[in-house]
Simulated assay, not measured.
Amino acid sequence: MPSENPLKILIVDDEPLARARLRELLGDIAVQLPSAVVGEAVNGLAALDFLRENPVDVVLADIRMPGMDGIELAGHLGALAKPPAIIFTTAYDNYAVQAFDLNAVDYLLKPVRAQRLLTALHKVAAAPPLNPELLGSIGQAVRGSGRTHLSCQERGRLLLVPVAEVLYFKADLKYVTARTIEREYLLDEALTHLENEYAERFIRLHRAVLVARSALAGFEKAAGDDAEAYGWALLRGVPEKLPVSRRQWAPAKALVKSA
């Protein structure tokens, strides 16, 4: 690789010593493979904030990090205009096979060695796309829960939606709307996938609606001639009512009574 075109690298790790170690190693191999560390981040959220304005060629990301881990970060990278390649770093060798299942460029076991880093970076040009079907399941295995954020494109920009702030998901044609107190977001997600990923946080009210358990305030029966719903769910913090199917009416009401 010519020296005038060094690899632009973002280092993502919550441990300052680990970031410093990677910087040092990149300096050690600079003759064989020129690179420039253009930024550092302490977790996936900070990394995505940086990447919105600063495209890079490679992300060196730890797998276990607070706030947003490396696996979830990898899932959001595909929504960027120019997705960078990702190389995972980890102290846990049991993630190695999973990293390759995802089609990550490579994984580096800590403490990272210069030659292994060089080998991994040489693979960047031929890196295949990440495997999105495995990202969710492997991420849940890493953190024991679903993604902390969902991503969407709005006017050419990547937006992150904190799952903890979502009141409900509503399917409409090929998109799903996520509603928070402040606003709505259009997601390219499947409602059934969201239902499986967040089974402990959301329940189904209707074939097209999932609602956060904590958002339910009460219910009212629909008018006899209302073809859209058997009943309506009332929510905390927003005026909208959500349709409840006959099948979900009793389970949903029982949930509110037991809260």
Results as ranks from 00 to 15, higher is better:
residue 46 A to Y: 01
residue 47 A to K: 03
residue 48 L to H: 04
residue 50 F to I: 07
residue 51 L to K: 02
residue 52 R to V: 00
residue 54 N to K: 12
residue 55 P to Y: 15
residue 55 P to F: 15
residue 55 P to S: 10
residue 58 V to T: 14
residue 60 L to C: 09
residue 62 D to F: 01
residue 63 I to S: 02
residue 64 R to H: 14
residue 65 M to E: 07
residue 66 P to T: 11
residue 67 G to M: 14
residue 67 G to F: 15
residue 69 D to I: 02
residue 70 G to I: 09
residue 71 I to L: 14
residue 72 E to H: 04
residue 72 E to L: 01
residue 74 A to S: 13
residue 75 G to C: 08
residue 77 L to N: 08
residue 79 A to N: 05
residue 79 A to M: 06
residue 79 A to I: 03
residue 80 L to T: 00
residue 80 L to K: 01
residue 82 K to R: 15
residue 82 K to W: 06
residue 82 K to A: 14
residue 83 P to F: 10
residue 83 P to L: 09
residue 88 F to L: 09
residue 90 T to L: 11
residue 90 T to D: 12
residue 91 A to R: 07
residue 91 A to S: 05
residue 91 A to T: 11
residue 93 D to V: 09
residue 94 N to K: 14
residue 95 Y to L: 10
residue 95 Y to F: 15
residue 98 Q to N: 11
residue 98 Q to R: 13
residue 99 A to V: 04
residue 101 D to P: 00
residue 103 N to D: 01
residue 107 Y to C: 01
residue 110 K to I: 06
residue 114 A to F: 04
residue 116 R to H: 13
residue 119 T to M: 02
residue 122 H to I: 00
residue 123 K to A: 06
residue 123 K to D: 07
residue 128 P to T: 05
residue 128 P to H: 05
residue 128 P to S: 06
residue 128 P to V: 04
residue 132 P to S: 01
residue 132 P to I: 06
residue 133 E to N: 13
residue 133 E to H: 11
residue 135 L to F: 06
residue 139 G to K: 05
residue 139 G to I: 04
residue 139 G to A: 05
residue 142 V to F: 13
residue 144 G to L: 11
residue 145 S to F: 00
residue 146 G to Q: 12
residue 146 G to R: 08
residue 149 H to R: 15
residue 151 S to W: 05
residue 152 C to M: 13
residue 152 C to W: 12
residue 155 R to I: 00
residue 159 L to E: 10
residue 159 L to I: 00
residue 161 V to F: 07
residue 161 V to P: 11
residue 161 V to L: 00
